[in-house]
Design a protein around this nucleic acid. Structure first.
Length: 822
DNA sequence: GAGTTTGAAACT
DNA sequence: CAGTTTCAAACTC
């Protein structure tokens, strides 16, 4: 079932990948999206399955994209029994060979002119050689009943063409009705279908290309690298294709670029699905991932495992401080792309488990792991109630500079799938149609999780293991997001259906996802139902999160919600997430632009106006139609209008520069009029400014910097002083303020008690009496007024003495109390 | 806070 | 693409 138009599918991969984190990757390189050069330390995200069915079975996917980029091959070398490792290499020919041992090597290569397939099936091992398609060699034992893993090799466009010419058919290795599809979504798109044995203990893989007769074949598509089309796989799948379409395959592209030789942790990237330009609807059929545990490690290196596992319980699983929560969707729908930062702390041999509960029919477009070390949590939410509308939420830990997009297919029934990524600029929420829940015909009671029926498939390959729990699509009925404990994780446990965006299809507005600002609504796929995509600003995601039980008006738009909108905490001009989150965007003051032009900072930043001072603001959901038109207009004028102007430098701020350069004439680029100066970056050669003083050696700039630094230091000092003083005052108050204790009325550290007061008064009275007596006996001749003055003096002195005694007593009591730590 | 300056965005 | 206008932020007083 096509829920998204082919155009959208073709756009999605790039869209998804359009994040700041990936901006550094040259588009020219085919594998740039999937495999990015990363520090070795950041490249691995080990993940473990919570409950691997077969411990002996491990599947490790080691993807290494060649620097050349055009050719990307996946080589799976079998080192030990029941180990499955896939190492992408720059090899075009595809050969699947298995030795006597259960080794399975997959080497997706660029398609060659010949499309020959060699299949060897043995109990101990299976070798499949497919020239012109892929070469897969890896020892493996795959046990997942009725589960398939599709790994798409990554190939260049040329390769894909050649593969097409060669009649690329997915290599199907079928064993006991189990299917493993190894395919590279993207460039070459040569899918390899491996039919997985029901029992994982049996090594070896039987290869049967195009032969799939499993009663209820369920496919798991894992795409490694590649940005190009997926359609070859689908188109050439033969009956497999039909089955796949029927099963509504969902593909998860795992892009990883890590030198196999380096001992650095492997970076695990689950990224966008196929970049399917020209992808036909059939090919665009999203592969279904019922559940999976992926362990990705480098075969040569210490064990690095990335495990995508389907948890059986609703509890959130956090591994290595990263969690990705993916809520399965009842109905097959488009893919959600999530960028996930890889933890830097990951070390070899360290495993990270990504619980992924994905019901069949649900789609995950891409999960991208960025390079930042910020913790990321991936959790899969699962439906708890049948009647509940599936809400799919993906929470990704904040990644500096990384942008995350959640694409929400619009549906007539507003099912909300939301992704929150702290620090990301764009938040896309997926609207999922909840229509097929009952269609499955299976009775689903509340708190019924299809995942419970999932059977994790574990493929063990030495240090690497991959377990993929697979859940039949029929079992998946409802999806409820799991509560996420991490601050970076969105916690949405609401069971209510929520509509984030108006479901009204806007076919005229289909801007490139790459540049889509939040709020963009993409037209539903032609003939694909009412499914569309909506890009929702972060603040709305936040809003939803904050008020999970608030149901927004569906269909007819949204009720006035500006009041509940929260400021999105988004990176600005490449600043770190922390910086962006530490402050809120300034409210705009637009008066004439209706906040629908780039004059408006809110609009330009892809945010809805919130708490602004603007007049006649249309930058809100109430005027979504106008807003969308304005977005389209801006994009037509400048496709990169909503991209950050300040590109993120490769290695820090030194490389940051304005994408267009400034045009200052009178400010000397030393005032905030200058966008470069405002972004605290130097003007570059692309600037067209006149009289620029914003360069490294500029004395004026240095002076300003010094002044600014001094001012900043001063402010910090003042702030610190205030904070300290406040703290001291607070502490003092805490210590000296009477704390009413229950009952007695005596107050600790309060020494002017009733008794003290009475005693003081008695002293004063006694002093007064004494003064009176003195006057009567000794100074009768004095005047009355003199007597009064003397009496007052004596009383005051006595009062002073009393006070001194009180203070001394208090001090002594305090000291005594401190000595006993009271 | 009002008025001015400035440069990006929008327009022609 | 260049020139002009519009616009809102930055800045000054």
């Amino acid at each position: 079932m096509d829920v998204v138009s082919p155009e959208l599918n073709s756009l999605l991969p790039d869209e998804i990948m359009d994040t700041e984190a990936i901006e550094d990757i040259p588009q020219s390189q085919p594998d740039s999206t999937t495999a990015r050069p990363e520090p070795s330390a950041d490249t691995s995200v080990p993940m473990e399955t919570d409950t691997p069915v077969a411990a002996s079975e491990n599947l490790s996917l080691c993807l290494d994209t060649s620097s050349t980029g055009h050719t990307q091959a996946v080589t799976t070398s079998l080192t030990t029994d029941s180990t499955f490792s896939i190492t992408p290499v720059s090899q075009l020919p595809v050969s699947i060979s298995s030795t006597s041992s259960p080794r399975f090597t997959l080497k997706p290569a660029m398609a060659t002119s010949t499309a020959t397939t060699k299949t060897t099936d043995s109990l101990t091992g299976t070798s499949v050689t497919t020239s012109g398609l892929q070469k897969l060699s890896a020892p493996f034992t795959i046990s997942a009943a009725n589960h398939q893993i599709i790994l798409n090799k990554v190939a260049s466009a040329q390769a894909s063409e050649a593969a097409k010419a060669a009649g690329m058919q997915p290599q199907i290795i079928k064993q006991d009705g189990q299917k493993l599809l190894v395919t590279a979504i993207g460039k070459s798109g040569q899918p390899i279908v491996l039919q997985l044995p029901h029992t994982g203990s049996k090594p070896g893989v039987s290869l049967a290309a195009g032969d799939n007769k499993s009663a209820a074949p369920q496919y798991k598509v894992v795409t490694i690298g590649g940005r190009t089309e997926l359609k070859p796989m689908m188109a050439t799948a033969g009956n497999q294709l039909t089955t796949l379409q029927a099963q509504q395959l969902k593909a998860v592209q795992i892009a990883k670029k890590t030198p196999t030789s380096s001992a650095a942790p492997i970076k695990f990237i689950i990224t966008k699905t196929v970049n399917s330009k020209g992808l036909n609807p059939q090919t665009s059929v999203s592969p279904v991932i019922a559940g999976r545990v992926l362990t990705q490690t480098s075969p040569v290196l210490p064990t690095r495992t990335i495990t995508l596992t389907e948890s059986h319980n609703t509890s959130i699983q956090s591994i290595a401080g990263k969690k990705i929560a993916i809520s399965p969707l009842k109905t097959p729908s488009k893919v959600t792309v999530v960028s996930v930062a890889s933890p830097t702390s990951n070390t070899s041999g360290k495993s990270v488990t990504l619980p992924v509960n994905v019901a069949l029919g649900q789609q995950i477009l891409a999960v991208q792991q960025s390079t930042s070390a910020s913790p990321v949590k991936v959790a899969t939410s699962q439906a708890t109630s049948q009647n509940m509308k599936p809400v799919q939420s993906v929470a990704v830990g904040g990644v500096s500079g990384a942008q995350f997009k959640t694409i929400i297919p619009l549906a007539t029934q507003p099912n909300v799938q939301q992704i929150q990524v702290p620090g990301s600029r764009f938040h896309y929420v997926r609207l999922v149609t909840a229509t097929t829940a009952s269609s499955t015909g299976q009775p689903s009671g509340p708190s019924t999780s299809s995942i419970q029926t999932a059977k994790p498939m574990v493929v063990s390959t030495g240090a690497v293991r991959m377990s993929v729990p697979i859940v039949p699509a029929q079992t998946m009925k409802q999806v409820a997001p799991k509560p996420l404990t991490s601050a970076s994780v969105v916690t949405t446990t609401q069971t209510q259906q929520r509509l984030i965006m108006p479901a009204t299809p806007l076919p005229q507005i289909q801007p490139n996802f790459t540049n889509l600002p939040p709020g963009t609504v993409l037209a539903p796929a032609p003939g694909g139902g009412n499914m569309g995509y909506a890009v929702v600003p972060a603040q709305y995601v936040t809003q939803i999160q904050q008020s999970p039980f608030v149901t927004l008006a569906s269909g007819s738009g949204f009720a006035a919600n500006t009041g509940v909108q929260t400021q999105a905490k988004l990176p600005l001009n490449g600043l770190s997430t922390a910086d962006s989150t530490s402050r809120q965007r300034k409210p705009c003051n637009c008066t004439k632009s209706q906040c629908l032009k780039l004059y408006c900072d809110c609009f330009a930043n892809g945010e809805f106006c919130s708490n602004c001072n603007c007049n006649n603001c249309f930058n809100n959901l109430e005027h979504e139609t106008e807003r969308l038109k304005a977005i389209k207009t801006c994009l037509d004028r400048n496709p990169e209008a909503f991209k950050p102007k300040i590109g993120k430098g490769k290695e820090g701020e030194s490389d940051r520069r304005h994408s267009k350069g400034c045009n200052c004439k009178r400010s000397g680029c030393l005032k905030n009029y200058c966008e470069c100066y405002e972004a605290k970056i130097m003007c570059s050669s692309i600037c067209k400014c006149i009289g620029c003083k914003n360069f490294e050696e500029s004395p004026e700039r240095k002076t300003l910097m010094h002044l600014a630094d001094a001012a900043e230091v001063r402010v910090q000092q003042q702030t610190a002083a205030k904070t300290k003083l406040s703290s001291q005052i607070s502490d003092l108050l805490m210590r000296t303020t009477p704390v009413i204790s229950s009952g007695s009325g005596r107050l600790p550290y309060t020494f002017v008690t009733k008794e003290v007061l009475e005693a003081t008064c008695e002293c004063l009275l006694e002093q007064a009496k004494k003064a009176e007596q003195t006057h009567q006996h000794q100074h009768q001749h004095q005047h009355q007024h003199q007597h009064q003055a003397e009496a007052e003096r004596m009383i005051l002195e006595e009062f002073g003495h009393c006070l001194m005694r009180i203070i001394n007593s208090a001090g002594k009591a305090k000291a005594d109390c401190a000595s006993i730590n009271c």
